[in-house]
Design a protein around this nucleic acid. Sequence first.
DNA 1: AGCCAGGACTGAG
DNA 2: CTCAGTCATGGC
Length: 212
Amino acid sequence: MSDTNNQPVIKIFDVLYSTYGPQGWWPGDSPFETIVGAILTQSTAWHNVALAIANLKREEILDPCTLLKANPERVKALIAPSGFFNVKYDRLKNFLQHLMKYDMDFERFRCLPVRDLRNELLEINGIGFETADSILLYAFDRSVFVVDAYTRRLFSRLGYAWMEKAPYEKIQKFFMGELPSDSCLYNEFHALVVAHCKTTCKKNPSCSSCNV
DNA sequence: AGCCAGGACTGAG
DNA sequence: CTCAGTCATGGC
């Protein structure tokens, strides 16, 4: 709270943005595709997720009703490239079954207040903090800040050492207190953190280049 | 040839 | 409550 070495969060964002430019995460063909992607990308490289989604599109089952009715083994085979296909199938199914409470009406579900939406997502087995918030931000365009391992790592090295082990929601609350409530800003911010860590930090374990 | 990705759940201690 | 083990494939 009184660490004078900390750069203001917004300034770090500015440097990242001017370094890497807009990342264009998940403009997506549809919110539903984004949600599927959010679940499939759990602990998985995005490239593999893209393969899985392409399969679902090719077979034309990338919509809630069709996907829920499709043969489980067939769906598992299609999403196999994204790994963990057994658990991920169950997680997709859990989400779809939750959607049944809204008569599979996607629009009715997404109109809920953010707080309710988030709580409902978190009730679904297989959707944790990061996936829920990714869905809210990237699929529903709500101004919710997404925290992940990269965020913890990068900011721990930028003077916010407490983030290394702090609870997810404490970190989230911090960022949302420091930044204006803006889904576009949060969208780019999270993507830029990932972009930076995947390039610079990864090639440099000591991460001295994190002196943004 | 390992190692690791844009996590979350479960069971053990 | 903390934490290792588990889930699986593709790319480097």
